[in-house]
Design a binder for these strands. Structure first.
Length: 370
DNA sequence: TCTGGGGTCCTAGGACCC
DNA sequence: TCTGGGGTCCTAGGACCC
């Protein structure tokens, strides 16, 4: 989806169309005026720790974008309109667009709130006509635009879906790789993040084409055999992964960054209240999905941004807030609490659906020596 | 007064079992 | 002058993604 959160907000506030708008923070709810219009906050008035989750393309023209600190963004685009995130709305539109696509092509893999992989192998129709149909269905259901890449596999489609944003269609075959993929920066590959990009740059590798030609032995020395081999395959556009409809979540979590850093002793009451709230919310989430959990974890971020986690496996799966809280407190006892804290989180993993027969995945036929 | 919140997958060591 | 080979589960951290 194109600038998803911001685009959903524009459905509600169409008067903001064409303006730089950013989504983020907690307390920038527009105020309804007596004349029926809204008073919107400007980015320059923002004080606090938030980051931008989404920016309209007009805002991006100022150099602001996702994950940028809002204080920094305010310097680049002080007059941009600031709106708080409404995740309920986004989840609603997320369901709508996914359902609309599913009518045309049922084989779908979820990639988060605003993105999916679609297997079009067995769907009738010409490629370009299919892309147009999908975009139209999404628009009819939501009033929102999306961008589509159609290629032989997930890796290439992910790259291509980004090449013609917003409202774009990119169709590409293996033969097009040298011309259209190899000039791109390695960072465009899903799975090459900031760390790997920096390491590759230090080896003189900037583009996907350079990566494709890189010496395998050198890559192995720097990245290990497994990742090195994946890098080379990726650079050649090779990706055998299937579009998999995952039925169950692996984990669910709730976390929060505090308005100011808190100390385990001085701010004991405040922290305790936050922990209780997080456990309550997590329990709600689990119950809504019908999950129970056997592993409860806590996550702390210290004021120096170091992250630590502790987890405990409980003898019987839990879903209620009190049991989660108890497990979380067990974990907290095992973590150093000298430094001030910036973030606290609680996670439930090893999820099960009570009553459902324990589902063991079938062993995959090995291809190891083929 | 840089740096959110929700996830997935991988690695690696240790305990423990047969 | 020893201490195999296979497996599972648990824990902690890290890279990466939306």
């Amino acid at each position: 989806m194109d600038a998803f959160f911001a685009s959903v907000e524009l459905l509600r506030y169409p008067e903001l169309r064409g303006q730089p708008v950013v989504i983020g923070g907690r307390n920038a709810t527009p105020v309804l005026q007596a004349d029926g219009s809204h008073q919107f906050a400007r980015l320059r008035t923002y004080v606090g720790r938030g980051v931008i989750t989404t920016a309209t393309y007009e805002a991006r023209a100022f150099g602001v974008g996702s994950a940028m600190g809002m204080m920094k963004a305010a310097k680049l685009a002080p007059d941009a309109i600031l709106l708080p995130a409404n995740f309920e709305d986004y989840r609603h539109y997320s369901r709508l667009f996914k359902q609309a696509v599913a009518v045309i092509a049922p084989q779908i893999e979820d990639r988060g709130i605003d993105e999916i992989f679609i297997d079009l192998t067995d769907v009738e129709g010409e490629t370009d006509e299919l892309a147009a149909r999908i975009k139209q269905a999404v628009f009819d259901a939501t009033g929102l635009t999306c961008s589509i890449g159609i290629t032989p596999n997930k890796l290439l489609s992910k790259i291509c879906s980004d090449l013609n944003k917003p409202n774009g269609i990119t169709i590409l075959g293996f033969d097009d790789i040298p011309e259209r993929i190899w000039p791109l920066n390695v960072r465009k590959v899903n799975g090459i993040g900031p760390k790997a990009t920096a390491k590759l740059a230090s080896l003189g590798i900037e583009t996907i084409g350079q990566l494709a030609r890189a010496d395998q032995g050198m890559l192995q020395d720097y990245f290990g055999a497994h990742y090195a081999s994946w890098l080379t395959q990726a650079a050649h556009g090779i990706d055998q992964r299937v579009v998999a409809n995952r039925a169950m979540s692996k984990s669910m979590s709730r976390e929060t960054t505090f308005e100011r850093d808190l100390h385990a002793r001085q701010d004991r009451e405040t922290l305790s209240g936050i922990l209780v709230t997080l456990c309550d919310r997590l329990a709600e989430d689990l119950k809504r999905k019908g999950y129970v959990s056997r592993t409860i974890s806590i996550k702390l971020r210290y004021d120096d941004f170091q992250i630590v986690s502790r987890n405990v496996t409980v003898p019987e799966p839990v879903a209620d807030a009190a049991a989660i809280l108890q497990a979380a407190r067990e974990c907290l006892k095992r973590v150093p609490l000298q430094r001030k804290l910036r973030l606290l989180g609680v996670r439930a993993s090893t999820l099960e659906v009570p009553g459902a027969a324990a589902h063991k995945p079938l062993p995959v036929q090995g291809d190891l020596f083929a």
